[in-house]
Simulated scan of single mutants.
Amino acid sequence: MKRIFLFLLTNIAVMVVLSITMNVLGVGRYLTANGLDLSQLLIFSALVGFTGAIISLLISKWMAKTSTGARVIDPQAPANAREAWLVDTVHQLADRAGIGHPEVAIYEGEPNAFATGAFKNNALVAVSSGLLESMTEEEIGAVLGHEISHVANGDMITLTLIQGVVNTFVVFLARVIGYFVDRVLLKNDKDVGLGYYATVIVCEIVFGILASVIVAWFSRRREYRADAGSAHLLGAREPMIHALARLGGVQAGELPKTFQASGIAGAQAISAIFASHPPLAARIQALQTMRVA
């Protein structure tokens, strides 16, 4: 919770500095004199930027179950020995990580797994039937440790906050530039015109692409941390190394777009800078050089 508070405080400070900088440079005063209230725009941008991201987080468990067809295992009445082992392993790892027991689910598909949920003590960990069939218990345990580490690290919440912040800047800067183009370059002294709307659309596309690079960079960082977290929870790096090597030899299952960044294996990206996951070889190398306490 402290990390989230500091993160929010830092980004609020960044927004305040941006607003002050624009006023010092005279941009804010000029735009205000021409009818644009930067404070109101910043509030509007934050509402637009954060609302969608936060709502998606709050309903993420429901969306995950619905979109993947995941079946939650009743911890009191697992259907078979494999399900009982799966639930018991997840609960043991959660205890070691100091979080509440998440729901455990299985869904049909090629090898993959993910964790999601708005709260550390009320999360969901799901694994595919393909992963259960293609990996050993040791490797599955490492994958579960990876997903539990995501939950314990608060990665879903932090990624949502980062997405909200970059969305806010996209909305804010696109409208500031649109207003500037419409009023200054096109000399429109009436209500905002076509130049404003066209500029906003173009800027949101361009800034949105840049924002996705930032979000993808953070997503890759959290994958390294989750891999390391699995090694610490298990007390050894080898199970996670073996699990990643196994993933490299199979066709990983694709998750719905909303949860692609949450999977143990990431989806293909048009460029490495847009990838939500580092290459498997890089993740294995990072594990090989880390120190396990």
Rank of each mutant, 00 (worst) to 15 (best):
R183C: 07
R225P: 05
A228P: 09
A293G: 09
K2I: 11
V215S: 12
Q268V: 13
F5D: 09
E204M: 13
E137G: 02
G208V: 02
D191F: 08
L8H: 00
V184M: 06
V104P: 05
N188M: 11
L124M: 06
I284F: 00
V125N: 02
P279I: 07
R220L: 15
F274E: 11
A211E: 10
H150F: 04
H277K: 11
A70D: 03
T199K: 09
L86Q: 06
F119L: 14
T289M: 12
A81E: 15
S149Y: 01
N80M: 12
D95P: 05
S271G: 12
E238F: 01
P102S: 07
A70Y: 00
C203M: 15
N122E: 08
T168K: 03
E139Q: 14
R71W: 00
V72C: 05
V171G: 01
E110S: 13
R29G: 11
A281N: 14
V176M: 10
I264W: 02
A282W: 03
A81I: 12
I214P: 13
D95C: 02
G28D: 06
M63A: 15
L38H: 00
L161W: 04
V17H: 03
V166R: 00
S134D: 08
F7G: 08
A281T: 12
T160A: 05
